[in-house]
C-alpha cells in the first residue's frame, strides 16, 4: 500500500490540473486500510509526505477507513455499482469517513481524483 501511495504521490505531482485544484489544500488526511494507517500530508496540493502509522501524535483533518479488497474493485476501470465512488463505498458499508467531512467536501473534486489515481493506471 505504501508503494502504491508513493506512486499516487508522483502521479499527483505530474498532474498540473490537480495541483491547480489543490493549490489551497494543506491538510493531513488519515487513510486506514485493513487496519494499517497512513498519514497523507498535503501541502498546497502536493502530497508532501506519506507517513505510515500508527501515531497518536499526528493530528488529521478527516479520515477514510476502508479495506484493500474494496479498493481493488474501486480502482478498476469499471467497478461494480457502489464501488465506483468513495461515497458509494460508504453507502455500501465498505468505507467510512470521519472527522471534518466538510473540509473534504469543500475540496471534493481534488480528493476524489486523488483517490482515483490508480484507476488511471488501470485505464492505461
Amino acid at each position: 500500500m505504501l508503494e502504491l501511495l508513493q506512486r499516487m504521490q508522483a502521479r499527483l505531482d505530474a498532474s498540473p490540473h490537480m495541483l491547480r485544484l489543490g493549490r489551497l489544500i494543506s491538510e493531513t488526511v488519515l487513510l486506514r486500510v485493513d487496519g494499517d494507517e497512513y498519514y497523507l500530508v498535503f501541502d498546497k496540493g502536493h502530497l508532501a509526505e506519506v507517513v505510515p502509522g500508527p501515531s497518536r501524535k499526528t493530528p488529521w483533518r478527516f479520515a477514510i477507513t476502508t479495506d484493500s479488497e474494496a479498493l481493488r474493485e474501486f480502482w478498476k476501470a469499471h467497478p461494480k455499482p457502489g464501488f465506483h465512488d468513495i461515497f458509494g463505498l460508504v453507502t455500501i458499508g465498505r468505507a467510512k469517513i470521519e472527522g471534518d467531512i466538510l473540509a473534504m467536501v469543500k475540496n471534493l473534486r481534488f480528493f476524489k481524483e486523488f483517490l482515483a489515481l490508480p484507476r488511471e493506471e488501470a485505464l492505461a
Partner: peptide, 17 residues
C-alpha cells in the same frame, strides 16, 4: 466555498463509469 463545484463533485458519485 463554491456550491456548484461541490455539488458537481458530489453528484459525480451518481455517474456510471
Amino acid at each position: 466555498a463554491h456550491g456548484g463545484e461541490m455539488g458537481a463533485a458530489l453528484v459525480s458519485a451518481n455517474i456510471s463509469p
